[in-house]
Simulated assay, not measured.
Amino acid sequence: MTTLFDPIQAGDLHLANRIVMAPLTRNRAPEAIPTPLMAEYYAQRASAGLLITEATAICPEGQGYADVPGLYGTEQLDGWKRVTQAVHDLGGKIVTQLWHVGRVSHVELQPHYQKPVAPSAIRAHTKTVLIKDGVPTFVDTSEPRALDAEEIPGIVQAYRHAAQNAISAGFDGVEIHAANGYLIDQFLKTGANHRKDDYGGSITNRARLLLEVVAAVTEAIGGGRTGIRLSPVTPANDIVDDDPQPLFDHVARKLAPYGLAYVHVIEGATGGPRELPDRPFDYAAFKAAYRATGGTGAWMVNNGYDLELAQQALADGADLVAFGKAYIANPDLVARLKAGGPFNKPDKMTFYGGGEKGYTDYPFLEA
C-alpha cells in the first residue's frame, strides 16, 4: 500500500515523499523582500516532499497584506534566490505560490493609495493585515473597483512574468493561487463576479481568467512545473458560488490538457470544517472529471489532515497530502509523522509578523 513516505513524480518534479508543506502567510517580508530568516525557515522544512511558499504577489497591485513577499523586483528575486538555494542545498524541492489578492486588500497597501481591483465593485466583508506601530493589525478591506476588460490581459501577463521570475530565482516550479477568495477565485464565483462581458455570467466566462492564466504560465515555464490551488466551497474571504459543482467540474475538464504537475484541492472550509452542510460538494466527481479528460497531474488534498486521515486519503486515490498549521510548529514534520509524534503545538500569537520567535525556534526531534 502506498504510504506518505513513498516517492512520487508530479509532472517534472521528483518528490522524495508525498508530504507537502502548504502555503502559509507569515508576514515576515518587510518591503515585500524575502529575508535570510525566511531562508532558514524554509530550509528547516526541506525534508518535505514539496515546499509551497507563502503566497507571493505577482505585482504591486496584487498585494493585500503587509509584509508579504513579492516576485516582481530585483531585490525580491535576490531574496528568493537565497531561499531556493538553502532548500536545494538540503535536497529539498520548492515552488512558489503566485498570488493576486484582487479585492482582499486595503488602499494603504496599494500603489498611490488606489482602490484594489476586482471583477466587480463588491466589497469583501473580511479582514486584511496592516502593520501599525510595528504590530500586525487586522482591518477591514477597502472597497474595490471593477477591472476594465482591457486591463485583464495585463494581469495575465503579470502572472506569466512572475512565473518566469520564479524559475530565474531557482524555484522548481510555481503554484497558481486560484483559491480562498482571491482574484482568480473572485472571477470564478457568482458572489463576487457580476460582470456582463466575456468574463462574467456563464461558467465558461467566469472560468476564462483562470484558464488564460494557466495557458500563459504553462507556455512560459511548462505544465510539468505548474500546479494550481482550488477551493470549491470555502467561505474564506467572503466568497461564495451559487452552484459550485458544475463550475469546478468544468474547470477540471479544462485544466486536463495543460499537463499540470499537480492540482491542489482545499476540501471544505479553509482551516475549518471539512464538510459544509450548506455547501455540499462531490470531490470524487471533481477528480473524476479531471481524470476522464486526460488530466495526469498529481492530486493533492488539503485541510485538517493528520497521519490517519492522510493515509486514508492515499488509499482512496490521492497522490499528495498538504499540511499547513502542523508545519508551523514542526519543521521536521516528516520525521514526526514517521515516528507517530510527538508534535509541537503552534503559538498562535506569532503566526503573523515578528522575527524568529514562533518561526524558526521550534525544536526538532532529538536524534
Rank of each mutant, 00 (worst) to 15 (best):
F5K: 03
I8D: 11
I8F: 11
G11C: 05
D12K: 10
H14N: 06
A16G: 11
N17A: 14
A22L: 09
T25W: 00
P30S: 02
Y41G: 00
Y41P: 09
Y42R: 03
Q44E: 06
A46L: 05
G64I: 02
Y65D: 11
Y65Q: 04
D67W: 04
L71W: 02
G73A: 15
Q76Y: 05
L77K: 03
G79I: 00
R82P: 07
T96R: 03
S105R: 06
Q110N: 14
H112D: 15
K115E: 13
P119Q: 00
P119F: 05
A121K: 02
I122M: 00
I122P: 12
H125V: 12
V135M: 12
F138L: 13
S142G: 09
E143Y: 08
A146M: 09
P153E: 03
Q157F: 01
Q157D: 15
Q164F: 03
Q164Y: 00
S168E: 13
G170Y: 03
F171R: 02
D172F: 01
V174H: 04
A192H: 11
A192D: 15
H194C: 13
K196E: 15
Y199C: 13
Y199F: 14
N205H: 15
N205L: 09
N205R: 15
L209R: 12
A215G: 03
A216Y: 01
A216K: 06
G224N: 13
T226G: 06
S231Q: 06
A236I: 08
D238E: 12
I239A: 08
D241P: 13
D243Q: 10
D243I: 08
D243S: 14
L247G: 09
F248Q: 08
H250S: 13
Y262R: 07
V263F: 08
V265W: 01
E267I: 12
G271H: 01
G271E: 07
G271V: 09
G271P: 14
P273Q: 07
P280D: 08
A285K: 03
K287W: 00
K287G: 02
A289S: 12
Y290H: 04
T293A: 15
T293E: 14
T296L: 06
G297N: 06
W299Y: 10
M300R: 10
M300A: 09
V301M: 03
D306L: 00
L307N: 02
A310S: 15
Q312D: 10
D316F: 07
A318K: 05
L320A: 07
V321C: 10
A322K: 04
G324H: 04
I328Q: 08
A329S: 15
A329M: 08
A329D: 11
L333I: 06
V334T: 13
V334K: 07
A335Y: 05
A335P: 15
G341N: 05
F343L: 00
N344H: 03
D347I: 01
D347A: 01
D347F: 02
K348I: 10
M349S: 14
K357R: 15
G358S: 12
G358R: 01
Y362Q: 05
Y362P: 08
P363M: 03
E366A: 15
A367E: 14
